[in-house]
Amino acid sequence: MKRFYMMFRIEKIITGIFLLVFMCGSVKAQISPPGLGDANTALWSAFGVKRQLDSLGKKQSLSYIALGRKSSPDHYNLISKQAIIVLNHEVYHSFAPNQQYSYAVSYRRQPSYESSAPYEKESTEQEFRIYGRYAYTFKLGENWKLKNTVRQEFRKFFTADFHNAEENFQLRTRIKSQLTYNLSKKNNQKLALSAEGLFSTSYLNEPEQKWTPFGYREMRIAVYYMFNIPHSPFTMDIGYMDDLIRGSTSIKKGGVHYLAVDLIWNLPFKK
């Protein structure tokens, strides 16, 4: 049970401060890392394709594939162990001034490791996820924007061969705030600071079928530098995230420290 939660404790609490970017009605957002369980450091890399779905720029989609690696609890080599593979597709709709909703489907494959040295791989678990979110953005002067988001998730878990996992499914609520500052119009450079709190309840298969109490699980704090790559349809985001997991050993060391990089290919609207 402990080893299972080390892997799937992708949750934490706190309402955060949110910072994101809405430019010309388009989605401008980094692909934030998921929680990867107990570790000292982690690496998250993603490649996404963002499409404009209408001529007004109010509807977009973002599809991405991503990989995560992490260290063991006894060292800081952030590429030591495979941590996760993610496939994600999300559709956004800016339906009113400063307001947006989105919905998404996601598949994740994540190995779990023994809780004691030498931390060998124990098993692999699969997750299928659907979620929706609502966001409201405040413009704070010429260069600042504050975006507050509520996201509700349903997460279903399986073993590698599609048998029941220890955790059957989970309902999770995420509350996030992100503050974005426009550094320069050249290459559309921006700096973003965010905080996100995660709350959840799970229905367990083992050791007995029951619900866990709904409560705070994680807090994630992140800083991102975002820019357009000159003379190309690509944007790049480079960031740092600190994942503070309630009850984990990593929280005694200040959380799990992530280096995150994502590359997004922007495609215009075509009939």
Score class of each variant (00 low, 15 high):
86 V>M: 03
153 E>F: 03
166 E>A: 08
108 R>A: 15
156 K>C: 01
140 L>Y: 08
139 K>C: 11
251 I>M: 10
63 S>H: 06
36 L>F: 11
201 T>V: 07
50 K>Q: 15
133 R>E: 15
254 G>A: 08
243 D>L: 06
25 G>S: 14
31 I>N: 07
101 Y>M: 14
6 M>V: 04
166 E>N: 06
218 E>A: 12
61 S>R: 05
63 S>K: 07
97 P>N: 02
199 F>N: 12
94 S>H: 11
3 R>E: 15
27 V>C: 01
167 E>R: 14
164 N>Q: 14
66 A>N: 02
183 L>Y: 03
123 S>N: 15
30 Q>K: 07
130 I>R: 11
260 A>V: 11
200 S>Q: 14
259 L>Y: 10
204 L>S: 04
25 G>Q: 13
203 Y>G: 06
42 A>D: 04
241 M>V: 07
175 I>L: 15
20 L>N: 10
196 E>G: 06
254 G>I: 04
237 D>P: 02
12 K>W: 05
92 Y>V: 00
199 F>P: 04
62 L>I: 02
186 K>N: 06
129 R>T: 08
10 I>E: 15
120 E>N: 10
105 V>W: 15
21 V>L: 11
90 E>L: 00
259 L>A: 11
30 Q>W: 03
262 D>A: 02
156 K>W: 06
40 N>F: 05
152 Q>H: 03
248 S>C: 09
150 V>T: 00
223 V>R: 08
90 E>D: 03
85 I>C: 00
234 F>T: 03
83 A>F: 01
116 S>H: 13
77 N>A: 03
110 Q>R: 10
82 Q>A: 01
172 R>T: 02
120 E>K: 07
179 L>R: 02
192 A>L: 14
109 R>M: 13
3 R>W: 13
101 Y>H: 14
201 T>S: 15
244 L>V: 09
73 P>K: 00
212 T>D: 14
209 Q>E: 15
56 L>K: 15
65 I>Y: 14
140 L>E: 09
90 E>V: 05
226 M>E: 13
131 Y>Q: 08
159 T>E: 11
223 V>S: 12
85 I>E: 08
217 R>F: 09
71 S>H: 10
54 D>C: 07
198 L>C: 04
224 Y>G: 02
140 L>A: 14
49 V>D: 07
10 I>P: 01
148 N>F: 05
199 F>L: 15
48 G>D: 04
163 H>Y: 12
231 H>V: 06
133 R>P: 03
137 T>R: 12
104 A>I: 07
33 P>I: 11
224 Y>T: 10
35 G>F: 07
72 S>Y: 02
179 L>K: 01
253 K>F: 09
239 G>S: 04
212 T>E: 15
124 T>M: 05
233 P>H: 03
217 R>V: 08
